[in-house]
Amino acid sequence: MIAWRKLPAWLLRAWPLLALVPFFAVHAVALNAFQGQATWVHKIIGLSLQLLGGLLVLWSVNDNLGLFRKTSLAGTFMAWLRDFPTTNHHLILATNGMANASGSAAVVSVGRKTPTSLEERVAELELLLQELRAELSTKITNLAMRVEASKTELSDLIQATDGKIASLSERVEKVTIGGFKVQAFGVLLAIYGAITSVLA
């Protein structure tokens, strides 16, 4: 059984074919109105349809370039003209300046008294141990902060990559579905125009 409510949406999926119907009607009306000039009607209709079909294909290609390369056919053509090889060489002179800076820094060394007795040596070792523990604790804290920053950066990078993949997927879907139909319609118009020109 036919689902009549879904029929219009199903027919609109084939709009490149349905859009040819008005052109058929215009062609038939023109032939009926200018019965003695059928040859000229075929030539004008054929030329117009071929031009319109070619322009539609170019427009679709231009739209696809804008989606992926952020450029257009006109921009690509202008870039090609700018890259024209010429024989003029521009001499660029660069002057290199050198500046020497000298500075001095005073190094202050703090010395400790060399322990002589056993108690002094034990106290010195305890002091060194405390310093090493403090330094190790600082390094561990810094390392933990770096790891946490790397995790955050990696998470942001993954999210940005996911967003780019989703955007690229949408662009590919738009090109394969929407762009293909426009190009198919343009090709059909060009074919119809070529057949009409042959009939003339």
Rank of each mutant, 00 (worst) to 15 (best):
T116S: 05
P85A: 01
K139V: 09
L136T: 14
A74D: 02
G111I: 12
L51V: 15
R69D: 05
G103N: 08
L49E: 13
G66W: 04
G75V: 03
L67P: 02
L118Y: 10
G36L: 13
Q37M: 13
I140P: 02
L52Q: 01
L118W: 05
A94R: 15
V107A: 03
L143N: 04
A38F: 09
Q37N: 11
L56S: 05
Q130R: 15
R112K: 13
E120M: 04
D83Q: 10
T138N: 14
L129H: 13
A74M: 10
P115C: 05
Q37C: 03
H90E: 14
S102W: 09
T39Y: 11
A134E: 04
N88C: 09
D83F: 03
L91F: 11
L127K: 13
L81Q: 03
N64C: 11
T76I: 08
L136P: 07
V107K: 01
W80I: 00
G53T: 11
V41D: 02
E135V: 10
E131Q: 09
L47R: 04
E124R: 10
L143H: 01
Q37Y: 11
V110Q: 06
S102I: 12
I44H: 06
S137L: 12
V107N: 06
F34G: 01
R121I: 10
L65P: 04
A105K: 15
G111V: 12
T114K: 06
F77G: 00
K113R: 05
K43C: 06
G103D: 05
N62R: 02
S60Y: 00
F68R: 03
A106P: 08
A144K: 13
T138E: 13
T86D: 07
H90K: 09
G54F: 04
E124P: 04
V41I: 05
L93M: 09
G36S: 05
V107H: 01
M145Y: 09
I140V: 15
L91V: 15
N88P: 08
V147S: 10
A134N: 07
L127W: 14
I45A: 06
A94W: 10
V57R: 03
V147W: 03
G103Q: 09
D63L: 01
V122W: 02
V122C: 03
L65R: 02
T95A: 14
G111Q: 14
F68H: 06
N64H: 09
R112P: 02
P115H: 03
N96R: 08
V108H: 11
A38N: 09
V41T: 05
E131A: 07
A123I: 12
W80Y: 02
V61T: 07
S48Y: 07
S109I: 07
N142T: 06
M78V: 08
L132E: 10
N100G: 08
D83E: 05
T138A: 07
A99T: 15
P115V: 04
E120C: 04
I45G: 02
M98P: 02
G46E: 02
V108E: 10
T87D: 13
F77N: 02
Q50A: 10
A94S: 06
I92W: 11
L52H: 01
L118S: 14
A99N: 12
G111L: 15
S117I: 04
N62A: 01
